[in-house]
Design a protein around this nucleic acid. Structure first.
Lengths: 340, 340
DNA sequence: GCATAAAATGTAAGCGCTTGCATTTTGCAT
DNA sequence: ATGCAAAATGCAAGCGCTTACATTTTATGC
């Protein structure tokens, strides 16, 4: 139809349809404010010209982008994938577009990404965890960007959030391990600094130990970033201690899988020689042999609810709630009684 | 510093610094066109006011966004994660921002996403695979959006691309299987329709069979979407055939892992009772027991090279090359001789 | 048919930024 | 000091869209 390189604008459509640009705009944004006959005609022209509204111009004029940004620590492993997928689907259903970026667990990168997304006109932001510089929250408030925090929950928080209680969940898992008879437990934790989820999980184990009359200071902890390989290395280090731990708890499933693989390489049987637990219950947990005992995090529901809440928040429908979701203990083959 | 809800604009900065908006703009974009003294003063004001340029306005005025869009079939599993990560890093180093969206392997969704990214002003696009409606390519050309195709390679193609030869790679893998002595092979393929990678891999196996004097029409094929669970189900179906296949080749590692898990559940030993192969060599391949025989795809390099090529292309540095990368056969425990 | 309210459409003022061109400053050679 | 080219800065016209407000058309009740 069109004869070359010119990108059609609203103006072109208006001229071709013999109406004003306002009418064309209304056909696209508030179709019910335009009489059917006009609308049909305009939309036909839109189609014929292959018109696509210019996003930047629209954002500038409307001060609204229908865009939500999500900033996650990493895309490399599956921890956030499923939740984000659900988030994205729910958003799409509400007419919003999702922009994702990752930080590699680096606070400065996150700050940069937040600015970038805000500059891009994101109407709302999904952030993982609560721990970050107050100036960031101030900035977000100042720019009136609706912000929701996910993957974590804390009763006292005033920030709108959809999450789960990392502390309680890990405590429950640790209790299950202790109930199996384990007394010498080791922890392979994700990096604690600046990661409130990892910190809460660590504290959860310590509390469980205390509650069962064990000394939390006896818990050896190795901190490492969330990669399979690191889980393996940490496992090997922990198993060299005397007396040897009978159970290794891991900050997430990825680390746990790394630990399991290394156990196999070291000729240790799981769970006969050593029990291993994870956290998250991602797909991986059921792929390995034996299947991994872990804490199931309701990723999909979290993503879905987060989308709903965030949209409500920025559309002013809701004042912003703090929602807690439940985790579920998944007892599987990787946890057994300690060797006798 | 600032007293409330107003978002500072270029104008505010200009006024506060006692210069024109043009000068402020130049301080930000072409600092060497501004004398040092002015620049220092302006940047101080920028800092003090917490000014962030409005992306939409900038895009509209400059017709350039320094944004690259990538549209991948799925984020759910790790197939594209690593390559994308490398792509993103290389892009970042060149001063570009990456926007990612996924399609769930649905062509219409992809078309929609392409339009959305173009409307958002993406300077360039990374697309997976070549198979798509010509009108999409026409649209992209018309809008002069630099487009690069990845994950696939075909000598004749005129579209700039960075990829590997799916056909040859799978043929090599199939030859390795046949060389082990397997004569009854089954294939669990990803959905073929609209997926040129899956189609090429399928054809590669058939060619290998032919070349070894076997009838490619004897190859039972189950098509399914790339999910662990589906790999398992397909495996079970294939193994119910008489005579039973001695080797199951899979369209990717995710399907293969599903097959391995199901084999275990069915009481079949790998590779003693049945051999299984994958494709991609994602992390998963080395996590399972036994480790998976698969074809290593140079994801990271592909991402990196794609970023370089795409930037060169849209900056006019390069006319757009077609680059082929090599895959590497990874023979591991999951492939053995057929049971005798 | 006519007045009047309601619905549909048009007019035009921005939104915040970049950039070609005009103007002012500066640096230097004379 | 003076003149002149080069460097620095300012001016102002858009970029493509939305939307308050003004105007025109249509529908309604008598």
């Amino acid at each position: 139809m069109s004869d070359g390189k010119t990108i059609p604008t609203l103006d072109d459509v208006a001229r071709a349809a013999g109406v004003s640009t306002a009418t064309v705009s209304r056909c696209l944004n508030t179709p019910d404010r335009v009489v059917e006959k006009t609308r049909t005609k305009v939309l036909a022209v839109v189609e014929a010209l292959g018109y696509t509204p210019n996003f930047g111009a629209r954002a500038m004029a409307a001060k609204r982008t229908y865009t939500i940004g999500a900033i996650i620590p990493t895309m490399e492993n599956a921890i956030f994938a499923r939740g984000l997928q659900a988030f994205q689907e729910a958003l799409h259903a509400r007419g919003y577009t999702l922009l994702v970026s990752s930080t590699g667990y680096q606070a400065e990168v996150e700050a940069e990404q937040i600015r970038a997304l805000v500059a891009r006109g994101a109407d709302g932001l999904l952030l993982i965890g609560r721990a970050r510089d107050p100036s960031i929250y101030a900035f977000l408030r100042n720019r009136s960007v609706a912000t929701l925090i996910a993957w974590t929950f804390e009763a006292g928080s005033q920030q709108p959030a959809v999450g789960f209680d990392n502390h309680a969940a890990m405590k429950a898992l640790a209790s299950a391990v202790i109930d199996q008879g384990h007394r010498r437990i080791g922890l392979i934790s994700g990096t604690l600094d600046g990661n409130d989820r990892a910190t809460a999980r660590h504290a959860g184990i310590r509390d469980a130990l205390t509650e069962h009359g064990l000394d939390p200071d006896d818990l050896p902890v190795i901190e490492t970033s969330y990669e399979v390989e690191n889980g393996g290395a940490a496992f090997e280090t922990l198993m060299q201690r005397t007396p040897r731990p009978t159970a290794i708890m891991c900050g997430n499933d990825v680390l746990a899988v790394g630990a399991m693989k290394r156990a196999r390489d070291m000729g240790l049987r799981v769970p006969e020689d050593v029990s291993i637990t994870g956290f998250d219950d991602i797909e991986l947990a059921r792929i390995v042999t034996p299947e991994l005992t872990t804490m199931r995090v309701p990723h999909q529901e979290m993503g879905r609810r987060a989308a709903e809440e965030l949209v409500n928040l920025l559309e002013g429908t809701s004042p912003g709630a703090v929602i807690e979701l439940d985790c579920a203990l998944k007892l599987r083959g990787s946890l057994g009684p300690p060797p006798s």
